[in-house]
Simulated assay, not measured.
Amino acid sequence: MISSLNQFLGGELVRIISSALVIVVAIILNHLNVRYQTSPARAQAKRGQGRQQLVLIKNVIILSAVSFIVMIWATKIAGVAISLSAFAMALVLSTKELIMCITGYTMFAMSRPFNVGDHVALSGIQGLVVDVDLLNLTLSETNGSHQITGKTIILPNSVLLTAVITNHLGLGAFVVGTVRMAVPYAVNRQAFSDIAIATATQICEPWANDSQRHFQRLGSRALLEAPSNKVEVFWEPVDTKQHWVEIRFLVPVAQQEHVAQLIQNQIWEQYGEELAAVNKA
């Protein structure tokens, strides 16, 4: 009876149950951590510090859970590692790409940098995420206005390990749009800034309040400062003839390119001759 009990307590079933409990406890603790750190009162009082604590505690929970699971399976892992080390080395070398694809999918499942339906830019390719399986990522190619071109792109999940990923819908329904123009030094900076701000503000007025509320909600959840819904103009010297002027504004994701063109066209109507002088000089 005692020997049977010892075998049961040291068997795989108990290890599996113990591992599952560790994972469940880790998930619950992380959920409580997020709720505590993102509570309205704390988010307003300690926004920057709260974000650091949120990430720190999350990493501690993950590291502790992994450590406990390794301890639970330590004897099994040691035995298997010794007996299969040579075989594992050969297997890794022969299935490197397959392992990288599965690892890429695992990283995607854990961090969720994007979801199916998001518009992403990945390794210079932009598209709508159609499917993510164990080995491949499928994109439906889109243009600058997020319109589908009809092309389907399939990438191995291994690119998720090294590629720079831009999620155009990571901020939700609104993003920070920009217009970049070359302006000669001869143009009055204050007058041009006033015209640019007035033009962009008028065009963006229909969604100004909605976009501000949207970014405030995101800022509260992520413990980050939300961008202002006010149009901003930034000047950057280029050479002895002209500035680069960047106009920033909040805009619905699907209207980025259209709104940028409207702003440029209206500014050009007032400063067309002076801006054209850049190319003539």
Rank of each mutant, 00 (worst) to 15 (best):
M1T: 10
L5Q: 07
N6I: 13
F8G: 02
L9S: 14
G10T: 07
G10K: 07
E12M: 14
E12H: 10
L13F: 10
R15D: 10
I17K: 11
L21N: 08
V22H: 01
I23M: 10
V25A: 08
N30R: 02
N30D: 06
H31V: 11
Q37R: 04
S39L: 08
A41V: 15
A43Y: 10
Q44S: 15
Q44Y: 01
A45V: 02
R47P: 01
R47G: 01
G48R: 15
G48D: 08
Q49W: 07
L54Q: 07
K58E: 13
N59K: 14
V60S: 09
I61E: 05
F68T: 07
T75N: 10
K76N: 11
A78I: 15
A78T: 09
G79Y: 06
G79I: 13
S83V: 10
F87E: 14
M89Y: 15
A90L: 12
V92R: 09
L93N: 05
T95F: 14
K96W: 11
L98K: 02
I99W: 04
I99V: 07
I99T: 07
I99E: 08
M100W: 08
I102C: 03
T103R: 13
T106S: 09
M110H: 03
R112K: 14
R112C: 02
F114V: 00
V116K: 05
G117N: 06
S123F: 11
Q126G: 12
Q126N: 11
L128Y: 07
V130F: 04
D131A: 13
V132K: 08
D133W: 06
L135R: 10
L135V: 13
L137A: 01
E141Y: 11
T142L: 14
G144A: 04
H146Q: 08
Q147D: 12
K151A: 06
K151R: 11
P156T: 02
V159K: 00
V159C: 00
L160P: 02
L161R: 03
V164Q: 10
N167A: 05
H168P: 08
H168E: 04
L169D: 12
L169G: 04
V175D: 04
T178K: 04
T178Y: 07
V179G: 00
M181S: 05
V187F: 00
V187Y: 00
R189D: 06
A191Q: 14
S193W: 03
S193R: 06
I195T: 11
A200D: 06
T201W: 00
T201E: 11
Q202E: 15
I203R: 01
P206I: 01
P206Y: 03
A208M: 03
A208K: 06
S211K: 00
Q212F: 05
H214G: 04
H214K: 04
F215L: 07
Q216G: 03
L218Q: 02
L218S: 01
L218E: 06
G219H: 05
S220K: 09
S220Q: 15
L223V: 09
L223S: 06
P227M: 04
P227Y: 07
N229F: 00
V231K: 02
E232P: 00
V233E: 01
F234E: 13
F234K: 12
F234S: 12
T240H: 08
Q242Y: 09
W244I: 07
E246C: 11
E246G: 04
F249C: 02
V251R: 02
Q255T: 12
E257Y: 09
H258Y: 11
H258M: 12
Q264A: 10
Y271H: 05
E273V: 15
A276P: 02
A277I: 13
V278S: 09
V278Y: 09
